[in-house]
Each structure stands twice: as structure tokens, then as C-alpha cells.
Write a protein that binds this DNA or RNA. Structure first.
Length: 573
RNA sequence: GAUUCCGUAGCUCAGCCGGUAGAGCAUAACACUUUUAAUGUUGGGGUCCUGGGUUCGAAUCCCAGCGGGAUCACCA
């Protein structure tokens, strides 16, 4: 059993048994009342020392400095770290010094949770510390934590930095790199600030289906699944837009939803297969109104996190105070290329692309060509929040046609730091127009565009009953959080980013080995030698296995009987 | 998908021209009653990612694979 564990893990399991042997439950059931946090003590003790003469504190042991009959340890709680001072004769006032000499010095390890009671004082070196009078074990840790050391200047030594391990074992990451917790605290603030703002306006948070029979509302490849009882295919939603519009039809004036969306596409530092979006729909409004709403909302978010509207992002300082610059798609292209493309036909656009050195192919229509020019020449320049408005109709099947400009739709996207973070329309509520636009998408799908939108007859039926004029907005929450916390990868703002599965070695059971004649006590040795399945063992060289068994027996100082060579040979028959 | 770098102790990393596997921290033992990257002394700990190849000999060189990072492309 213990073979296969590292030496340090074995030692900790032995310490666990020893604790039990001397009558200490390493995983007690009782609650442990806490009267102070590390942040509270460090902040308020200097001013009001009398308030901290009898504190109860719990945390994880993060370092120990043992000096004979006195010791220092650092305990980490959810708010930070504080030093505790333990003196043998204080925690063991009687003759029995077991709690200090054995339990604290030998049986506790870095990573264990303990509770302490005592008084706060300042050490000779000036550090606020808890002088411990009582100590209780709250939870024993069986795996050693990586040790990250910091000196007084904040320099980090032996950091736990491997991104793979940090993302796969976020619990370890946030334990030893607690500075990253702030990102997630801020993520929560972003969402809560938006939610409070929406609620103040009288809009309602709703939930719509994640399992959808038709995936609509965006252009993306979905995850497919299947419902057994109904025996029907279902899709994880790529967007919730069409359901939220049904609720506007139903008579709600403002509905919003924060939720996970799922897109079966590439993964990189700005894309995760599941991501969080916020969509909001408000009746009787248009996209011009929505621009002001977004400005107010983002201003509040920036203030909540930074106390100012100015947010550092990379090498820039971005100011989220509105109003933001507004450029139509054509104006933005004119601004950054010096050329007015608004009256160009497809051939002229194609020629202009070639002139700019943009690759084009024959399948690209007018809308796509304009989008290429925008992406190549404009997007990266939009550092401060900028609205790009009035998109070509071809790429936007759910937005209303522009009130005055032919061939365009009433849509804006908000760009910040060269990236899109929000998308909004005056929503299309003309059911006949909507049907035609979706039919155009079907044609695209017929030509093999896997991302074209599907026809949703129930949604069209809802529109036919009548939807009031409505403005809708979608914001990518992960990307907004990246901006607000100055992170350049989406993995840093997700607790558990999607990863490739861990390489999992197959393990045969002990019985499998015993069945081919391996004595039970030798099974762990076989495992230790790297044979995890019977097949792997049989693929080995019998003579080498026999020799290695002897070697392992000696190396691990095992006092078990060596199997006869004939027996070993029989394992392979 | 392309390019490129990386994979060695629990963690962070050295390891030169191919010749018995190294350091710091962690860990174990001893000492030490205000330390703080505690200190001093002495130990233990390795599938050098996997599989092939070259070689008397491979952590090292070659090939393939797996995993990860970065950059680029694609993708709302």
C-alpha cells in the first residue's frame, strides 16, 4: 500500500497513525470558532491591542522555525498570513510535553490546518504574532505543498510557476500563490457590480436552457449530446439570445442572464470551450440607448475594482469613463487607412484589399471583405473604449436593418485594448425579415458553413406573435475580467480552465497479479518496478524481472521471501 | 494548424565535448527560549516524459510520440 507513495507522503501517513495512536483525531468533527482573521489582527492590533488579548485563530501551517523549546510558525487563513509563537511550557503547562515535543515538532507538517488560541503581541523583531496557549489539530495534510519562499523585499524563491500544474491543481496554486486569489475576488466584483446595476434599473435576472434542441443566437460549432428518455439530440447552448428574446415577447421589459456558453472550437489564451457571457435585453430601447447604458455599467465596474475609471492594461492606461468614441465601420476604416470604402462595390473592395496586402479569396462577399480590412487595419488601434457601429447586413442575421443607411444593420461592438468585448443590436423584431435572414443562413449551411445559424421555428413563431422594439447586448465576462485585472490569458481568470486529460496510467488490481501466481506481498514491488498491468509484466523479460525482483528486495530492504525462479518463469506462461 | 522552446528529486533548477545523477528549498536526525528565505552538523530521496536508433557506454546525439509554454494563424 505504502509503496508507490513518495517518502514524504509515507512519513505523513505514519504521522497520521501516530496522532490517532496517542488519542488525537486528525480530522475532528467539531466546529472551531474563529474570533479574528490575520488581516484583522495585522491591521487593527497596533491601534487596539487590548482587543486581541484572547483570540481564536485557524489556518494552514505554511512555515515552521523550530528552536528547541520555542518555535515560530506562519499560519495562512483566507485573508493572509500571521506568525504564531509557540513555547513548550505554555502549551504544555503540566509534566506531559507531548503536545509540543511530539505533536507539534514531529507530527505536524507544512500544509496542516490547526486552530490556536492565545494573545497577540509584538516580537523583538517587531512582527505582530499570536502567542499560543492552546493548539488543536483541525486537518492533517497528506501531500507536501510546494514551498514558495519570500524575503522581506517580496522576492520569490522556488516559485510554483508551472502553468500546467497551476491550472490543473488550482487548489495548490491558490494556497501557495495567494496573490492570484485577488483576480477571482475581482471577477466576482465585476459580476456583482453589473448585477446590482441591472437590478437597480428594475431588470430581472433569468435562467434559460443550457440544453437546447436547436443551437441558435450565434455562429459557432456546438457540443452535441443526447437525451436518452426522449431519444433526441440536444446541444449545449452557444448563446442564449433567442430564449431571452422569447421572454421579451412574453412581456418582461428587461431580462438578463449571466451564464456559461459552450463552443466546440479552438482553445488559446483568449478562448476556452466554456466561457461566461452576460446578455441583456431591454424593451422599447435601441442600440444608441444601449451605448450609454454600457458606459455607465463599465464605469461602475472599473470604480468597484480600482476606485477609479482608469485601469492599467498592459502598457496602457484605459479610461472607462464615458462617453466613448463612436465610429461607424466605414468611418473607422477611413480613419485608419485614409480611404472611404462606403461606396465601393465588391470588385473595388477586393482591389483595395490587395493594395493593403490583405489576402482575399473568391468566396468573400462585400461584408466579409470589409470585415477583413477592419480586422487587419483598424482593430488593433482601438485601445481606449471605442464603439464601432453600423455593420454590413450580411454577417448579422439577428440585428435590425439600419433606420437610414442601406445595406447596414443597427449594431455596435465595443473594442478595448484592440479586442472586442461587447456586441449589441437594435434587435430584429420583424418576423418576415427574420425568417428571410435565417433562410440565408441555411443557404450558407448548405454550402458547408458549419457555423451558420440554424432555423428555429419556435423562435420565429414567438416573433410572429410580436416582440416590442428591443435593444440587446452581450458581454464576454471572461474577457472583461481579463481587462479589469490586467491578465493576458483567459486561463488566469478561470478557476478551472479546460485542459487535456491527465495522462492516467492503467492499473491492474492486485488480484490480477495474484491470479497469474504473483505472491500478494510482491504485487506492490511489481508495481514499483513500473509494471502496472499484467500485460506489461508479461511483455517483460522473465530473467530480467527475476533479477530485478532481487534488486528491489535489497534496495527496499524488504524482508519477504524471494520467489523461486521457476515460479517467476510461470508468471509468464 | 504552423513555428519555436521546454520536460531531470515533493518544488525551483544546474548537468560542458557521450563516461557511475547534482544544488537550494522541502523532508529525516541532533543542537538551539524572539526567529522570519532562521542557523549549524549529519542523512534519506531519481522510470533523467515515453518508445525506438547510434554507441563499448546516452539525462546528454538522432528519429518518432506524449505533455506543456510562447508566438502566429483560424475561430465571435
Amino acid at each position: 500500500m505504502s509503496i508507490g507513495l513518495s517518502e514524504q507522503e509515507i512519513l505523513r501517513r505514519e504521522a497520521l497513525q501516530e496522532l490517532r495512536r496517542i488519542g488525537i483525531n486528525p480530522y475532528p468533527a467539531e466546529a472551531f470558532d474563529i474570533t479574528a482573521t490575520s488581516e484583522d489582527i495585522l491591521k487593527n492590533f497596533p491601534a487596539t491591542p487590548d482587543a486581541y488579548q484572547n483570540v481564536s485563530f485557524a489556518g494552514r501551517i505554511m512555515s515552521r522555525r523550530i528552536m528547541g523549546s520555542a518555535s515560530f510558525a506562519e499560519l495562512q487563513d483566507s485573508t493572509g498570513r500571521i506568525q504564531v509563537y509557540l513555547k513548550r511550557d505554555d502549551i504544555c503547562p503540566s509534566e506531559d510535553k507531548t503536545l509540543y515535543n511530539t505533536v507539534f515538532k514531529k507530527l505536524l507538517d507544512i500544509g496542516d490546518f490547526i486552530g490556536v488560541k492565545g494573545y497577540v503581541f509584538t516580537t523583538q523583531t517587531g512582527e505582530t504574532s499570536i502567542h499560543v496557549r492552546e493548539l488543536i489539530i483541525l486537518s492533517k495534510s497528506l501531500k507536501p505543498l510546494p514551498i514558495v519562499k519570500r524575503d522581506d523585499d517580496g522576492n520569490v524563491y522556488d516559485g510554483f510557476t508551472d502553468p500546467e500544474l497551476r491550472y490543473r491543481q488550482r487548489y495548490v496554486d491558490l494556497t501557495v500563490n495567494p496573490q492570484f486569489k485577488q483576480i477571482f475576488i475581482n471577477r466576482s466584483k465585476v459580476i456583482n457590480t453589473m448585477r446590482s446595476y441591472f437590478d437597480e434599473q428594475g431588470w430581472m435576472e433569468v435562467e434559460t436552457p443550457i440544453l437546447q434542441p436547436v443551437h441558435g443566437g450565434a455562429a459557432a460549432r456546438p457540443f452535441n449530446t443526447h437525451h436518452n428518455t426522449l431519444d433526441m439530440p440536444l446541444y449545449l447552448r452557444i448563446a442564449n439570445e433567442l430564449y431571452l428574446k422569447r421572454l421579451i415577447v412574453a412581456g418582461f421589459d428587461g431580462v438578463y442572464e449571466f451564464g456559461k456558453m459552450f463552443r466546440n472550437e479552438g482553445m488559446d489564451r483568449t478562448h476556452n470551450p466554456e466561457f461566461t457571457s452576460m446578455e441583456i435585453y431591454v424593451a422599447y430601447k435601441d442600440y444608441v440607448w444601449m451605448m450609454e447604458m454600457v458606459e455607465q455599467c463599465l464605469e461602475k465596474v472599473a470604480l468597484a475594482i480600482h476606485g477609479t475609471t482608469k485601469v492599467p492594461v498592459g502598457s496602457y492606461e484605459i479610461d472607462f469613463a464615458g462617453p466613448y468614441e463612436r465610429l461607424s465601420m466605414y468611418e473607422s476604416i477611413q480613419k485608419y487607412t485614409g480611404t472611404d470604402v462606403s461606396n465601393m462595390d465588391e470588385a473595388a473592395l477586393r482591389q483595395f484589399c490587395q493594395q493593403l496586402g490583405i489576402e482575399v479569396d473568391a468566396s468573400m462577399g462585400k461584408g466579409k471583405l470589409i470585415d477583413e480590412i477592419f480586422g487587419e487595419k483598424v482593430e488593433a488601434n482601438l485601445i481606449q473604449p471605442t464603439y464601432i457601429t453600423d455593420y454590413p447586413i450580411e454577417m448579422t442575421p439577428l440585428a435590425k436593418k439600419h433606420r437610414s443607411k442601406e445595406g447596414l444593420v443597427e449594431r455596435f461592438e465595443l473594442f478595448v485594448n484592440g479586442k472586442e468585448i461587447a456586441n449589441a443590436y437594435s434587435e430584429l423584431n420583424d418576423p418576415i425579415d427574420q425568417r428571410e435572414r435565417l433562410e440565408d443562413q441555411l443557404l450558407l449551411a448548405g454550402r458547408g458553413d458549419e457555423e451558420a445559424m440554424a432555423m428555429d421555428e419556435d423562435f420565429l413563431r414567438a416573433l410572429e406573435y410580436g416582440m416590442p422594439p428591443t435593444s440587446g447586448l452581450g458581454i464576454g465576462i471572461d474577457r472583461l475580467v481579463m481587462l479589469m485585472t490586467n491578465q493576458s490569458t483567459i486561463q488566469e481568470v478561470l478557476f478551472f480552465p479546460q485542459m487535456r486529460p491527465e495522462k492516467k496510467a492503467k492499473f491492474a488490481t492486485a488480484e490480477d497479479f495474484i491470479n497469474i501466481g504473483v505472491p500478494a506481498q510482491w504485487v506492490p514491488v511489481i508495481n514499483k518496478m513500473g509494471f502496472n498491468t499484467v500485460e506489461e509484466l508479461k511483455a517483460g523479460n522473465p530473467n530480467k524481472v527475476f533479477n530485478d525482483l532481487g534488486g528491489m528486495r535489497k534496495k527496499m530492504k524488504l524482508e519477504i521471501t524471494m520467489p523461486a525462479k521457476e515460479d517467476v518463469m510461470n508468471w509468464f506462461s
